[in-house]
Amino acid sequence: MIFKVIKKEELKHLFDVLAAENRVVGPVEAGRDSNGRPIYAFDQVSDFNNICLDYTTTKISAKRYFLPYQEDLAGFRIDGKDWHKKINYNIESPYIFFGLHACDINALNKLDKVLLGSVYPMPYYAAKRKNMFIIGLDCIPQPYCFCRSMGADTALHGFDMFLTDMGGQYFAEILSDTAFNFLKNIKTAEPAYADRMRYIKIIAEKKRKFTVRVDTTDLANILDMEFQSDVWKQWGEKCLACGTCSQVCPTCYCYGVEETVNINFHEAKKTKMLYSCNLIDFAQVAGGHNFRLKRDARLKYRYYHKHRGFVEAYEESLCVGCGRCGEACLAEITVPAVISSVRGEES
């Protein structure tokens, strides 16, 4: 790892260099809520001034850029007696992410394990994930953030460069050659002793700012034991079976595939659509039998996949603690509340 300090005004130059030939995605203000608070979203940006580097958490993760909600996977077209197949990984040029928080970088690392590291890697994901250029950015823990409990409050890999705000300048961790080469375009300096000490202090301060935590001690076992617990029924009664939690989550990757024939009957295609284990037909099979007809069973399995099944397979949870699902859930079903109820803790 190489460390540098970058004056704040230099960052705009870096953006301009990157944006000149690439598609840059960053946090922007999408609107204001009824209390006047900004609502952030990831969007393509062409003007540095539109990026909100002091953003809290975007309502929705950046996943439409690597796991689109809907994506045509393959198709064919009949031309007389001939036919052509069409397979498109749906990426023309790589994305540059300008300002991903640690939780979202860790989410990509987790997805990599499933979608790149398994026996059948997913080419649609790989095509977008490979060559992605990521500038990470430090953040201030919000009342719903529990990434620290999930070990996702710092990113150790999966980015090209990570910036920490130190007032007038950024402390930069440089991980890739690409980042190193891009930085030749702007003024940087070696961090002095005082800069390094300042950085250490800022990191330590951040750790003290978390207000919510999830006790993950022995969690996979506890979930195993409490499979029949009544708390699932209570949460199931609240759940709207709306799928919002999965849609906003940076690590939910489940999907369904639909085949459609064009109205001219010369073309057909397979389309993938992100789905959620909380939707009523998630576990419905051919013949109509549904293994999880009840809301509490489905909601439970969302937690079992994230905090038990994935842990057994990869020795880590499939949740980075970004808090988005709880924030977006109108029924106020949050990960910390659900886990603590399963553990029998007072809430």
Partner: peptide, 21 residues
Amino acid sequence: PVYPVCMECKANENICLFDLG
């Protein structure tokens, strides 16, 4: 579709109307 409108609304990345009051 058996799921509610929210599923599509999130895929369209709309701001939730409840957030807008």
